[in-house]
Design a protein around this nucleic acid. Structure first.
Lengths: 115, 115
DNA sequence: CGGCATCCGACTGGATACTG
DNA sequence: CAGTATCCAGTCGGATGCCG
């Protein structure tokens, strides 16, 4: 039985960050959770096309890395809420700088196409 | 002949950034090139353990994405220098914020271990 | 509703050998 | 020196089906 374990520390903090947020849907998940606490089903609908297994895995990894908090209400029918930890919320600055840079790349590409 | 093509634009600028710098060695390559223009062999030695094929591929991708500039001197023996484009240099802010966040993660992990 | 188990295909990156 | 060609292994994420 493989116990969930947090991403291994690499030599460089930048790579640590990359390992944690580098998953296919992770920045999107974080993006949504920055606005709201959300349930599993809400996330499934927001992340158009993600499968339950994949969403589950990404969330467990984020949880293991201390970015996401999982609150299980232990009810029937099941109810689980996901939110960001303080560490997760502190990722906003990183995402903002990445978004700013990504935007300049996209602008540059548009210019190249029209030239 | 498979033409090198830049990473496809995704819905979100953050994912664009991730696609471009998400490769196994890319942030390290950028890190070194922020300090210096470097030759292929220098990079090989700096990135301990990377194979020629892998380094070549990562560099071509970074070049296709407009981050790295490749200058071939066309001499025998071959001499090629790699440097960052202005766009590549503008990544420094992104790497700094990622490094800052990654450091806090590592500190937190250390605390957890010692508790 | 919120998962987990199983199976699987695609992609990435590594090892090795060879070349202009 | 700076690659390319070939082959291969590990990982990631998707599809599907089942369950409490």
């Amino acid at each position: 039985m493989p116990k969930e374990q947090a991403t291994k520390t690499l030599t460089c903090p930048v790579e640590t960050t990359l390992k944690i947020i580098g998953g296919r849907w992770k920045v999107l998940i974080i993006h949504f959770l920055l606005n709201d606490t959300m349930r599993f089903g809400e996330l499934t609908r927001s992340l158009n096309g993600i499968s339950a297994r994949t969403l589950s895995k990404q969330l467990r990894e984020l949880e293991a890395d201390g970015v996401v908090h999982r609150k299980d209400f232990g009810e029937i029918p099941p109810k689980v809420e996901y939110s960001l930890t303080p560490l997760g919320r502190s990722l906003e600055q990183v995402l903002l700088s990445m978004e700013a840079w990504g935007s300049t790349v996209e602008k540059q590409r548009t210019k190249r196409k029209s030239s």
